[in-house]
Computed example of a mutant assay.
Amino acid sequence: MEFDVVQGDIAEQSADALVNAAGTSLEMGSGVAGALRERAGEEINEEATEKGPIDLGTAAVTDAYDLNADHVIHAAAMPHYGDGQATEESIRDATRNALEKADDLQCRSVVMPALGCGVAGFDLEDGAAIIGEEIEEYESDHLEEVRFIAYSDDEYDTIRSVTGKATESEQGETGADQ
């Protein structure tokens, strides 16, 4: 399975499945969820909230509506807004469950954001390491490509460095080889 880090807006990506950084309620508010809802249309939020709430660390699937994907996998790495923050365990479980859902759907490509590292308050460097480990260790039946997406330049640089996806010259620039 190919694994790479890319930069951009997840709502602009093309893949069999896009992963939403969801809370357990599955209400699509801000951040990744808001970007996906804005591009997909309000129907995605209605379908997602009908499927919620779900347990922390689990995932649910909706149609992708107007997104350039077949499915959106809502991975609950954080509790409902205001009910706490993401943890190492919730990020690990949500990542693994999102990959399993993609495999169950026979997806060949999936785009995954930094689950739990935005409004959920988990440290990006630590979260990226957890997500990268889960992607690397996952044994897939169908997935051929996983793209770990970063929105900002800083997020992109951090994720590439932590997951080992940066080139040697990039690692030298960030001090990773010192």
Rank of each mutant, 00 (worst) to 15 (best):
G118F: 08
R108I: 02
L115E: 06
Y81H: 08
A76N: 10
F148L: 06
G84I: 04
E139L: 05
T58Y: 14
S90P: 10
A75V: 10
G121D: 11
L67M: 07
E133G: 11
D63W: 05
V111F: 04
G82S: 00
T95Q: 06
Y138R: 08
D104H: 05
D126G: 07
R92Q: 14
S109R: 12
D66P: 02
E136R: 15
E88I: 01
D83T: 09
K101T: 04
R96G: 04
A114P: 04
G118H: 12
L124M: 10
F148P: 03
A69Y: 09
V111E: 12
G127C: 05
E100D: 14
G116W: 02
S90A: 12
P113M: 03
E100G: 01
S109H: 08
V61H: 11
G118E: 13
E134M: 08
I135W: 01
A102F: 09
H74I: 07
V146F: 03
D104Q: 14
D66V: 05
A75R: 10
A129E: 13
T62I: 02
D126K: 15
A129V: 06
A77M: 01
A129L: 03
E125M: 09
A120K: 01
T87K: 07
F148M: 04
A77R: 00
G84K: 08
F148I: 02
I91S: 04
V146E: 11
A120M: 02
A128K: 14
F122C: 06
A129H: 04
A69T: 09
D123S: 11
F122P: 07
D141P: 01
L115T: 07
E125Y: 09
A128W: 12
H74W: 07
D141G: 11
E145S: 12
A86Y: 03
H80L: 07
A76F: 09
D70T: 13
V61P: 07
R147P: 00
R96A: 13
D83V: 00
A75N: 12
V72C: 07
A59F: 09
A128V: 12
E100Q: 15
C107P: 01
D126T: 13
A69W: 10
V119D: 14
G84Q: 06
V72E: 05
G84A: 07
D141V: 02
F148K: 00
D141T: 06
A77F: 00
G118N: 10
F122G: 06
G127E: 06
V146G: 09
V72F: 05
T62W: 05
R108Q: 14
A76H: 08
E134D: 04
K101I: 04
A60E: 15
E139Q: 15
A86V: 02
H80N: 13
D104G: 07
D63A: 14
C117A: 15
V61R: 09
A94L: 11
Q106V: 03
K101L: 03
G127K: 03
E137M: 10
T87E: 08
Q106N: 13
F148V: 00
T87G: 05
A98R: 12
Q106I: 02
Y138Q: 09
D70Q: 15
K101C: 10
V72W: 05
S140E: 00
D126L: 10
G116L: 01
T62H: 04
P79S: 14
T95P: 01
G82A: 02
A129M: 06
A114E: 05
